[in-house]
């Protein structure tokens, strides 16, 4: 599904590469944690998958397409394969829950008949049934993140990327979000989650990729956070 072949990335004007010579393979339907301290290259890793950046050397292949050969006008098509969730939710404050989720479909030109069918389903899936008409500031942090997950998932992407989705949430609420991501993963969607949350990683026992100073230092199936080499 996602494959990195000897990927290095050096940002212009910087000497130290943000990623160096990284090779890995993520299969369809996998659940992967990406951990590492700040500046270890986690963000660059995600930006390469979204093709917000191009690798300096090497190839990034997502769903069989070499992203460095992807032309700019095909980029939107690529991004429709990937749902994205952020630490800060990034909801539109003046739109209701329904409108926030529907927005993701509207702007890629889906007809209204499709929206009214699909959006309530996905809102139910994330456990917000009955709250369709609430505004984001009327929801708790956990609920807002559920809206963000619904928006990322409503287009049924092949990959869901979550950038510290529990970073702003208390442990109990985080468990709820993790259950939701797990449920989405079980539908066959590949989930790549960047996190600092040790408890979650240790509890879930999924594949762990650890980055340090731009290098992949650990790739462990059913891993834990504090693995001692």
């Amino acid at each position: 599904m996602i494959s990195f072949e000897n990927v290095s990335k050096t940002y212009p004007g910087q000497e130290r590469p943000a990623l160096r010579n990284m090779s890995l393979e993520i299969e369809r339907g996998e659940f992967v944690f990406v951990i590492g301290s700040s500046g270890s290259g986690k963000s660059t890793f995600m930006r390469l998958i979204l093709r917000e950046e191009r690798p300096t050397t090497g190839r990034v292949i997502v769903a069989g397409k070499d992203l460095s050969r992807l032309s700019n006008w095909k980029l939107p098509q690529h991004r429709r394969l990937i749902g994205t969730v952020f630490q800060d939710f990034r909801l539109l404050p003046n739109k209701t829950v329904f409108q926030n989720v529907a927005f993701a479909l509207e702007v890629i030109g889906k007809p209204k008949s499709h929206l009214v069918k699909v959006v309530p389903e996905v809102i139910d899936l994330v456990g917000l049934g009955g709250k369709e008409d609430r505004l984001p500031n009327e929801l708790s942090g956990g609920e807002q993140q559920r809206v963000a997950v619904a928006r990322a998932f409503v287009n049924r992407p092949m990959v869901l990327i979550a950038d510290e989705p529990t970073g702003n949430l208390d442990p109990e609420t985080s468990v709820g979000i993790m259950k939701l991501l797990d449920r989405i993963n079980r539908t066959g969607t590949t989930v790549v989650m960047v996190t600092h949350d040790q408890a979650i990683v240790n509890q879930m026992r999924k594949r762990v990729l650890e980055l340090d100073q731009g290098a992949l230092v650990r790739d462990q199936a059913r891993g834990v956070y504090g693995y001692v080499r």
Binding site: P76, R79, G83, R90, L92, V107, I108
Partner: peptide
């Protein structure tokens, strides 16, 4: 920029944005 950022992420075409 909030709206356009989200539009970009969910794959709205450049023209549409």
């Amino acid at each position: 920029r909030r709206e356009t950022g989200i539009m970009r992420l969910v794959g709205a075409s450049n023209f549409y944005i």
